[in-house]
Design a protein around this nucleic acid. Structure first.
Lengths: 239, 239
DNA sequence: CGTCGCTTTGACACCTCTCAAGGGGGGTGG
DNA sequence: CCACCCCCCTTGAGAGGTGTCAAAGCGACG
């Protein structure tokens, strides 16, 4: 069940048959979540980490005035709360943005992996470090890029990340979330996201409509967002 | 040499004598960096990770138009590039903000730790996950908080983090960086940071002057920044 | 005592937010 | 099968927070 989701790891390093078996053995229950279901709450003690098989997941924090910031978006093959293995409880909530299928990995079994499979452990550690790299790029977007740049950048990032797991073609991918969800990723209001999307569409760069992203001009879209995928660590060595 | 810097880890979990010895044995050269010295460049292959003993370090990314975003600030006891152990090269630069003393940990020795000390490995993994938690809180600040809230929040965060390593009293701590550095953390211009600091000072909340932060009213400062230290994982269990 | 980097302040511009209203599409119940 | 409703998208007008540009003050250091 998890075989095809190891693709993401294999890009970066070899996984032995033994390691693959150990991971498969660590897998626990398969669970489904409904759209908009918050299945991990900040502060809650956790005994499992979750591998996303199907659907989209976000991690978010709410502010006292009702504002929300989404701090991460997850696509199939991601481990949205692998970090809860060492943290024990989280500082944020986790929600399914669409109906999702996940596999749970009991922390006790992950602990066995750390005791018996150091190389696999380092690969899991790598995955949480990759998540942090994406956080950093989002910090740059939120801190320094304009609304248009930020939006273009995020659409480029998702294009790459979904391509890696075979869920995007050269020109399009499914993104069945609302403009409000996007706004909460981008630190903008949904009203403004709407205007930015209109602008991107009218310039022929990209169209987001009906839960689908259609890229009109990938080179221009990347330029508009100053997108450089280096931070996604798709290369084993720096260029 | 590293004993007192393990404080940060001991808050969260017990370190055995054997683990402490293993860590000490992994320590390599002690190195000094001058203020403003960038000692790790994005894309550079790395063979060491760095434990900060003295001084302040930042991690940052530059944009093509000359803007800069600082994505993390590090205080003594932090491991600013521990993640390079699994990533091999980094997506960002690392710079000393003040004169610094660090100890380098060769990745080969860290790899031995992952092979012989699973519990210690999990604690190191925890440290990188804590960095990611701080990244997330910064995303919230950058995305959703006003300039004043953001600034107050950062000053509160540093107060807590420096207190943990004995470098802050109840009311003050040294922060020998410029307003421009602060602005680059906060996603603001230095001109605006200056106005915000004036506002905070006139309200009696906090004063930042001459490289020193003096807190006038901690409770009010925390309220102004909506600061909740939960994301710093100072408690082993959720409240 | 001059220089240089950092801080401070003012005036004005502009990006994004707020508030408000209307449009469209899909699901549900009568 | 139709009508209604709700959620989401779209658009406009005006407000406000932060950026830009510019200049002067200040302090450390040589």
């Amino acid at each position: 069940m998890i075989e095809k989701h190891l693709m993401k790891l294999r890009i970066r390093d070899a996984i032995s048959a033994e390691e693959e078996a150990a991971l498969a053995a660590a897998a626990g229950d398969v669970v489904r979540y409904a759209a908009d279901q918050t299945f991990v709450t900040a502060g809650q003690e956790l005994g499992n980490s979750t591998l996303l098989l199907e659907g989209l997941i976000c991690r978010y924090k709410d502010l006292s005035d009702g504002q929300r910031q989404i701090t991460a978006l997850h696509v199939p093959g991601d481990f949205p709360d692998l970090h809860s293995f060492t943290l024990k409880y989280l500082d944020h909530n986790i929600m399914a943005l669409t109906p999702c299928t996940v596999v749970q990995f009991p922390h006790a079994r992950l602990q066995s992996i750390t005791e018996q499979h150091p190389h696999l452990t380092r690969m899991l550690w790598f995955m949480t470090n990759l998540d942090a790299a994406i956080h950093r790029e989002w910090e740059v977007s939120l801190g320094r890029r304009s609304a248009l740049e930020r939006t273009a950048h995020l659409l480029c990032e998702l294009h790459v990340r979904l391509s890696v797991v075979g869920l995007a073609s050269d020109r399009e991918y499914a993104l069945p979330i609302t403009q409000t969800d996007l706004a909460e990723c981008l630190g903008l209001t949904s009203v403004h996201v709407n205007r930015v999307l209109k602008d991107l569409r009218e310039r022929g760069l990209v169209e987001f409509r009906g839960g689908k992203v259609v890229i009109g001009d990938l080179a221009e879209l990347r330029r508009a967002g100053e997108f450089d995928p280096a931070y996604l660590y798709l290369e084993r060595r720096p260029r």
